[in-house]
Amino acid sequence: MEQLHIDHITKRYGHQVVLDDLSFDLAPGKIYGLLGRNGAGKSTLLNIITSRIFPTAGTIKLGDQDGRDNDAVLGQFYLMSEANLYPKRTTVRRMFDMADESYGGFDYQNADRLLKEFGVPSTAQLSNLSTGLQTAAKLTVALSVNAAFILLDEPVLGLDANHREVFYKELIKTYQNKPRTFVLSTHLIDEIQQVVEHVFIIDDHHLVEEGDVQAMLDKAYAISGPTKDVDEYTNGLRVLAQDELGNVKTAYVYNQLDDQRILPDRVKIGHYDLQHLFIYLTNGGTNNE
């Protein structure tokens, strides 16, 4: 299986820019996170990848094949989205059949097992289910469909804690049984940070950061101590945010720390998590003022 190249994608509606020149690659057999605040353009991007809408500029390529109007390429992508594209009165069982008709090789056995775990009857009509159970039904299809790139737009929308547990467990299970690429698009970062291997952060219609989660966290340092010492130590480093309480300051640095920098006695170094890194990166970020 080949890499998916998202190449200089721009989307405008009139004068409104929704995505501004985004480029990145998705490798086969990896779990990715696509992170952004509400309205950042995540759903638009997923819709463009799956050709539900067309970009104003840029291309989507699988290997060297253009995705546009190319069924062989599009047949590799499955998008589970919030929008309900199913006809009225579609039953859950019918959703399975539709996925099988479009992609072939639908894993009915896995799907039936998942439905039981989620407690969704296969005879139920999708539109009659609660938001959470609709998500559960759609996830069941997404985790059983035969496609190489599975894009999940807000995969835990409305799911209760128990169902979220089921989802994360089953995602990893199916991924291990049959490695394929998953993209989890969400703003709920806390829960997915240990599930995803690599993340893309979109803010204000731009890709502001991408990388392996561990490599990103390795650069995320919380440096705290007396304000004067912290300022001296962090001088020249990229500081995303800072808290001050009396004379004590914590600076949230996003930078490698070299050994040349001498750590003052009363300054402590710790780490912060992906959720906070995301918040600081998408808040406009403050500088050392």
């Binding site: 779990i31 994360y168 467990k169 990893i172 299970k173 991924y175 291990q176 240990q194 599930v195 291997e197």
Partner: peptide
């Protein structure tokens, strides 16, 4: 690795 990652919801690569 398979059991641990499924149980702890941690990416198998990790």
């Amino acid at each position: 690795t398979t059991q641990l990652s499924a149980q702890l919801h941690i990416n198998p690569a990790t």
